[in-house]
């Protein structure tokens, strides 16, 4: 196992809330971390431009604004989260094929099993490895 993902409690609550707000569609957003510690301290919920229950797209403009805001705060974009509305919190083949950065955290919020299930992964090439999440 890699990681763990150090995730601020507020960011965690925000990404779970945004996942519910997005129903019945998939919801998504970006995560920013402190470069020195890797601690994810900021969550940027975004629209799902794909407006779909099966796929998501972070709007291009939202990506730019999040990147700039993170930089101003001395943070770096370090991951993305999205919900799976009817399935488990595991990366789909589409998620793996389109994962942009092997250093990123890929956080999945599974809403298909009653209570939300939040898990984090590293995706390097076609290899998916779960990492533990530590709320801080």
């Amino acid at each position: 196992m890699t990681g763990p993902l150090l995730l601020d409690r507020d960011a965690y609550l925000q990404l779970v809330a945004h996942s519910y707000d997005g129903l019945p569609l998939e919801a998504c957003g970006l995560l920013a971390a402190e470069p020195a510690t890797g601690r994810v301290s900021r969550c940027y919920p975004t629209e799902n431009e794909a407006a779909s229950a099966r796929i998501y797209t972070v709007p291009s403009k939202a990506m730019l604004l999040a990147d700039r805001d993170a930089e101003e705060r001395g943070l770096v974009l370090a991951g993305v989260f999205h919900s799976h509305t009817h399935t488990t919190a595991y990366p789909s083949p589409t998620d793996v094929a389109q994962a942009p950065d092997p250093a990123w955290h890929y956080v999945l919020v599974g809403l298909g099993e009653g209570a939300p299930v939040v898990r984090s992964y590293r995706i390097v090439g076609v290899t998916v490895e779960e990492e533990p999440i530590v709320l801080v």
Partner: peptide
């Protein structure tokens, strides 16, 4: 401040003082 898809694509002019930003396009399923 603009994605080149909404400008002139790769033909968009750049020059002194222009900032070009490259970021991943984030999507999945």
């Amino acid at each position: 401040d603009d994605d080149v898809r909404y400008l002139d694509g790769l033909a968009t002019k750049v020059g002194e003082g222009t900032e070009v930003t490259i970021l991943p396009a984030v999507a999945g399923g």
